[in-house]
Nucleic acid binder design. Sequence first.
DNA 1: ACCTGAACACCGTTCAAGT
DNA 2: ACCTGAACACCGTTCAAGT
Lengths: 192, 192
Amino acid sequence: MQLHKRDVVDAATTLLDNYGMADLSMRRLARELAVSPGALYWHFANKQQLLGAVADRILGSIHDVPGDWRVRVEAICDQLRDALLSHTDGAELVSASFAAGQSEAMTQILGWLADAAIAAGVDTGHAVTAGRTVLYYVLGFTADEQSRLQWDAAGADLPDEQSVLGADPSRRFGFGVQLLVDGIAARRSLPV
Amino acid sequence: MQLHKRDVVDAATTLLDNYGMADLSMRRLARELAVSPGALYWHFANKQQLLGAVADRILGSIHDVPGDWRVRVEAICDQLRDALLSHTDGAELVSASFAAGQSEAMTQILGWLADAAIAAGVDTGHAVTAGRTVLYYVLGFTADEQSRLQWDAAGADLPDEQSVLGADPSRRFGFGVQLLVDGIAARRSLPV
DNA sequence: ACCTGAACACCGTTCAAGT
DNA sequence: ACCTGAACACCGTTCAAGT
């Protein structure tokens, strides 16, 4: 039967979850779908575009919430981190797709964050930069967290840094989010 | 004559500057040095380690400065951005090396930023997170800026966004740095 | 419209064997 | 100690030709 974009993204996500980014190749994916590698290029212009579609799938359930701008920023950050952590190499894949401008979902999320920054009082010329700053943090922090998690899961048992102090990733993540929220609050332009 | 680590890093940097990351392969590098690909593996364990050495070369001239913690953070951010922008795909390469934990220079810079955060009054358990937050921003912002710059230089002439408002990368960069500095200032723990 | 088969031009890494 | 040669096991992408 026919191959649909949906099937390809499904198979790619499964491959990612089970084997990680290194094994998410066009050839491997084609083999899994029992088609020739060339078949994928009928549905996607190139690998980047396909990865963008996987990123959008990973981010599919993230939504903006009503309320105070601080609550909105915190909610978006938490949802984003959770979504990334629930797929092998999720942060790495979404980072790459965002950098390549291939994820519509990330563009939408950036819009929400810029919106929240405006609600906070940041001037429109800087709101997108504020939003990007938040995204760079969530992607960077989570990619780092995830690579350590996956290393540990692979039975590495590395010495847990200075233990105690730097513990609890969720709390450390929250600290960074608060730093950014306070920074946004401080960058509000004075009322005219 | 003999191949030294220095020669390899030199050639790799030249290759990067002239053709970008996509062409910085072990095989291409070996060809440029007129040795067999296997020869590189006598001097470097793998490609990641070699890229880490290139990253350290790119970041070689960055230094900490004396003075107020705000000045230190700003100076480090500016130096880092300048260093990244002065090599083709510099931000992408250093990002990858930092994520892989292969750049000693980045580890040192992170130390300086964490130090500055402590000087600002952030408690020691969160200082490294504060430092990482700054680094994620500089790397993310500069990678984005650089990819646009290189696209433009390749004769793309894309519509300049909403013009005027979002212009001047240096000013936008400074806005984000100030956001982070203010965020750090706000996260100082109350004196005991 | 959708896919195959085969090719093109590459990769990173390993390792016996040479000097 | 340092490097070659050759192999192993792959890549992403294109495109004539088929149905």
